[in-house]
Design a protein around this nucleic acid. Sequence first.
DNA 1: CAGACCGATTAAAACGTGTCAATGGCCATG
DNA 2: CATGGCCATTGACACGTTTTAATCGGTCTG
Lengths: 348, 348
Amino acid sequence: MSSSEGPRRPVGINDVAARAGVSPGTVSNVLNRPERVAESTRRRVERAVQELDYVRNSSGRSLRSGRSDSVGLLVLDVTNPFFAEVARGVEDTAGEEGLAVVLLNSAEQAARQRRSIRLLAEQRAAGAVIMPVDGDTTDLLWLRKQGVPGVLLDRGDVSAETACSVSVDNHAGGMAAGRHLINLGHERITYLSGPAELEQCRTRLEGLRAAVAESGGDPDRAVRVIRTAQLNAESGEKAVEEVLAGGPRRRPQAVFCTNDQLAVGVLKGLGERGLSAPGDLSVVGYDDVNLAALVHPGLTTVAQPKYELGRAAMELLLSELNDQEHHHERLRFAPELVVRGSTAAYRP
Amino acid sequence: MSSSEGPRRPVGINDVAARAGVSPGTVSNVLNRPERVAESTRRRVERAVQELDYVRNSSGRSLRSGRSDSVGLLVLDVTNPFFAEVARGVEDTAGEEGLAVVLLNSAEQAARQRRSIRLLAEQRAAGAVIMPVDGDTTDLLWLRKQGVPGVLLDRGDVSAETACSVSVDNHAGGMAAGRHLINLGHERITYLSGPAELEQCRTRLEGLRAAVAESGGDPDRAVRVIRTAQLNAESGEKAVEEVLAGGPRRRPQAVFCTNDQLAVGVLKGLGERGLSAPGDLSVVGYDDVNLAALVHPGLTTVAQPKYELGRAAMELLLSELNDQEHHHERLRFAPELVVRGSTAAYRP
DNA sequence: CAGACCGATTAAAACGTGTCAATGGCCATG
DNA sequence: CATGGCCATTGACACGTTTTAATCGGTCTG
């Protein structure tokens, strides 16, 4: 078609208007409210659009409207399959509404989170789904003051006056894991936790302790806590040393990990020392990522509805964007224990 | 500070200028070329910026400049850990340059790829890193015609006249896996491939066949190919049935999978049938994702420098954006065989 | 002392779009 | 035929920023 060489200047709505013999305003109408324009002119404009290969400029659009058509998704770690699955849910839902998703990665660092939030403000993002690094909601509030509403993900402890939130009941999850282990006869349980700042780590522990108390045990005696710096398999593998410290007699009968990655690391670490689950030790994870079903033995774990979590968060955000009457909502899913091969009854 | 209620209208560069008693142009200069403005006024402006909590509007910015400060990253599958690792490399590098990364997901569908590319054009993205669904480069060329340069990832077969590209030598990778298996004495090898459109699948197979030929074998006899619809563990698990078809005597001695996920699925499928690697069958994967080291037995696989791949792609893109003199470059990394427990010598 | 020059600042014009009040043409009604 | 009303279209402006050329006050030079 166009045989002209070199980078020509981009074609705008005015060029289309000229070509179709109408005013720019009409072209805009064809693009945004086609019903307002007569059929014949509409076709003429559409043809001009095709011939010139016009693509609209979203800078101009959002400058005029004060709002862009992309939403932010701020996650703690792109490489964690849990977040990837959540992202898929968010993305699918946003896509159905014609919104683009900007994926930002805080890598669990408050400074990076702050940078990302500032970026969203500069972009005048339509909204954001945020998994915060810590309990501090000032960043979120600031963003909202700038006109960008946010939905919290995986943070059940935030008041509904602040924002919508979607989470899974971590207390119930911890309890489910605890009950399972107790029913199997385990009395000394080690809880392998990630960084203490993460609410998930703390609440799941409380659930575990509640399960112990419920069965008449003393949480302070029965549950020992070990912290790792990060939530990945490597950290879990390293932690095995500490888990086993104290020798075979004082060794725990079960390990409950706050995350599947950690749990898989533990399985590996055990193997390296000639031990294995569930023979020497029962192991429970959390999340039910793909991986959990694939390792040997299959990992008993607390499943979270990951994809639905992302979808629900985005739907809440959409409701806040579209409905004139909006009340913040606190949505909470129920986790589900999935029993596989890594846990078994205690044999003294 | 500000105790005013309700959503106030956003503060712009003009408000800052008024507050500081200067013209908007000066504020812009303070923000973008501070050296041009006198120290005293600069401080005055900076103070006004702080007091008003001004955040700049990137729509206005990029409307004026014709270019936004975000780059696109189009991947085939967000949930695949290989891509997640690549994304991390891209994001880190872009972040150092102050560029935001818009992550888009084609889910291996040409239609979604097209939509995403259109979106990047509308945003007037500064550039893009693209992992194309198929060999068709028209989308890429169209995007470039719209003024958005793109770097191809994982597509070594594209001419350097079209665009920069970064890839890992798939032929060499296939060959490394092939040689390894041949050295172990395996003579009947099944290649478990993903969709035929993906160049990676085809080229790795060629490498495998080359290794067979090199050792004096006949590729057509020694290598059998099975295709799966997707590149995930589930597909691999399902494919086991077909892999084993023909009974114990005609069963392959080794399976080379185009992807670790597939390989892990195969391991699982074998287990379900009472078989295991490497006792009954050797299994080799590709990518060396985290998972590969964590399953039992550890997966022998062809490692790719994932993070570096992302980083290099972004650096190439940056060079194209910043250097006035730019020549397209074809960067190719070397893969590396990682031997773990899933392969062993053939015992008849 | 006149003129040139310099650095700091400003005024104004653009970028591409959406919206809204105003315009024009047309038909139906009185 | 005159009037009113309706619909399709238009013209002009606003959004927030960057940039260029112009302006201003002041200092140096001949």
